[in-house]
Design a protein around this nucleic acid. Structure first.
Length: 234
DNA sequence: GCGACAG
DNA sequence: ATCTTGTCGC
């Protein structure tokens, strides 16, 4: 497993206003017409990020799984300085530099990338998963643990049931029940994947727990990387 | 103006 | 995200 240094690009937005302008520019490049790779085939990569705000340290992890077996095929981590404060709607600017570094450190192609957070389900329709997809060209989906500012009806209690995630009358994603009787996860399209396919991927990746194996593995790994790397730079 | 708000 | 032990329940 490889650990690399993550660097915030020199032209990274320093203000919320600038960050929003970047989103409004990049959003035009999201590809929505493709269905994306079928679930259970090829590789699927989970990415996640952990923070130590007090020490200004961020750690990202990318974990590649065999989509058919959910076995870990490869892992990489990246450690750096925090590139942006947490602002609802601007999460990508906080997570992306470290995530890109972790993806770059992988020894193999990531396949479809599963993000912690949203894609299209976003105030400007350009959440973390969409942003990462546009920057990498990879198929991406967003799986979030909370409904953010959106509304939804409770899906049926059985595993596999879904209900629309709504911004007013517009379906921006779906609440997906990955475990019977347990709070659903909130799935949205990132880039080059349809919503139906994103939901199918999510279910295929979560046979035993609420969260997809991709995010569970990436979450555990980035926390470990944060513990091992603090403080940074050493 | 106030409250809500992915991670 | 992060601070944090035990505890109730399937």
């Amino acid at each position: 497993m490889r650990t690399v240094a993550a660097h915030t690009p020199a032209d990274w937005p320093a203000t919320e206003e600038h960050a929003r302008a970047v989103q409004d520019d990049l959003r035009t490049r999201v590809v929505l017409g493709e269905q994306g790779p079928p679930p259970g085939t090829g590789r699927v990569t989970g990415v996640d990020v952990a923070y130590d705000d007090a020490r200004d340290v961020v750690a990202a992890a990318a974990v590649v799984l065999d989509a058919a077996t959910l076995d870990v095929v490869a892992e990489a981590t990246a450690v750096g300085r925090i590139s942006f404060p947490y602002v609802p709607g601007l999460l990508a600017f906080r997570e992306i530099p470290a995530v890109l570094a972790a993806l770059d450190a992988l020894p193999c192609p990531p396949g479809t990338v599963v993000c912690d957070g949203y894609g299209l389900a976003h105030p400007r329709r350009f959440g973390l998963a969409s942003h990462l997809g546009v920057l990498t060209g990879l198929p991406t989906i967003g799986v979030a643990k909370n409904p953010f500012t959106f509304t939804h009806d409770e899906p049926d209690a059985r595993r596999g049931s879904t209900s629309p995630l709504l911004d007013g009358a517009e379906e921006v994603g779906r609440a997906v029940r990955t475990r019977a009787g347990v709070k659903p996860v909130f799935v949205s399209v990132g880039h080059r994947v349809s919503l139906d396919n994103a939901c199918a991927h999510t279910l295929a990746l979560a046979p035993s727990y609420r969260l997809p194996e991709t995010t569970r593995r990436a979450d555990a790994l980035c926390r470990e990387a944060l513990r091992a790397a603090t403080p940074y730079p050493a």
